[in-house]
Simulated scan of single mutants.
Amino acid sequence: MIRSSRLLNILLVSVLLPLAGLSQAAGWPRQVVTDNGTITLKSAPKRIVSTSVTLTGSLLAIDAPVIASGAGVPNSRFTDSQGFFSQWGAVAKQKHVQRLYIGEANAEMVAAQAPDLIVVSATGHDSALRLVNQLSSIAPVIVVNYDDKSWQQVVTLLGQATGHEDQAQTIIYQFDQRVTALKPALKLPPQPVSAFVWNGGGKEVNLWTADSAQGKLLQQLGFTLAPTPTQLATSHSMGQRKDIIQLSGEKMSEGLSGKSWLMFVADEDTVNQVNSDRFLQQTPAVKQGHVYPLGNDNFRLDYYSATHTLAILEKRFVH
């Protein structure tokens, strides 16, 4: 009886938990608190335009009706031939998501799609923040700051704005269940770790902070992030972003103070570049062989890239 009761409780939780929080935004019209204030949405959107290639993946993950998106440079380390991120490019193609432009946002192209909701990122190179007033004359605009949020927090907000709360909570629950199962099985490398993206042949690195989605995921799995030296902690990208600290030259070895290094957007060739860099050759992580690539599709963390990253961590650190 005890086992049956426990099993029943587990089943009930698995059914009910994905639906948790629906009452907070149930029904239309509804108000959504975003980085550009509280936005009133009269009805569930049916034609969403994402001006942020970073946020498009989260919209796709919750099956929101995104019809078009801004894009990055095609065929880069982390994009496909459309300029969409490789981790969800196939999903975008399947759902017939149209590429609007590459790089800088274009309000006329957005308007031509006749959207009923426009999604804008608050920071990053894909931000169309300067166009918010102009875009607001086309359709309601929600501004999402992803540099201080986990991908789970991002999809929760987007779920509330699109009426896809249940899909958002379901993928979060399923992902967290996988993290719960994986965490005790991981044989962690020497702690603490520095997590970063290696840019431009070693001219600089982007060090993920504890505020970043990448940093939050690693901490969720039990990794400890190495503290950033105080004199470098103010080197945040573009003066405002909280998720990365840009390091270059001699500052790289000082800022990458972890005993192990976890490299995002990286493969074995990237590790070889790091190991041969003149500024990094004598660091403990390089000398002791604790430099680990985590795959090429996690430049921005969303449900798709986070899931792929879990698989790589499992392959590398579960023995």
Rank of each mutant, 00 (worst) to 15 (best):
G239T: 10
K259M: 02
A181H: 10
G239I: 09
R6V: 04
V154P: 14
G200N: 14
P189R: 04
D176K: 04
D116V: 07
T307Y: 13
V144E: 00
G70E: 08
S237W: 11
W261F: 10
L188F: 13
W198M: 05
D302N: 10
V197R: 05
N272E: 10
Q31Y: 01
L129F: 12
T309A: 13
Y303V: 11
P229S: 01
V286D: 12
A105Y: 09
M252V: 08
D35V: 04
V205A: 15
S52P: 00
V66F: 11
S76F: 14
R130V: 13
Q220V: 01
K203P: 00
A311E: 15
K95V: 02
S276M: 04
R316P: 03
S260R: 07
V265P: 03
N199Y: 03
D302M: 08
T170A: 12
F85Y: 14
R77L: 15
P229L: 12
I67Q: 11
D267V: 13
S121F: 02
K315N: 15
R278Q: 08
P45Y: 02
V33S: 00
P284C: 15
M238P: 00
T34W: 07
I118S: 06
K216A: 04
D35W: 15
G201C: 10
L182F: 13
Q177I: 01
D277V: 06
R99Q: 15
A195R: 01
N298W: 00
S43K: 09
G202I: 04
Q98E: 01
S136N: 04
V49A: 11
L217R: 08
M238F: 14
Y304Q: 11
S50Q: 10
P284G: 03
R6H: 03
D63R: 14
P18W: 15
G222Y: 07
K315Q: 09
K46H: 07
S253H: 11
Q87W: 01
K216M: 04
G27N: 14
K46P: 10
H236V: 04
P189I: 10
V73F: 12
V66I: 05
V141N: 13
T234V: 03
S76V: 10
Y304R: 07
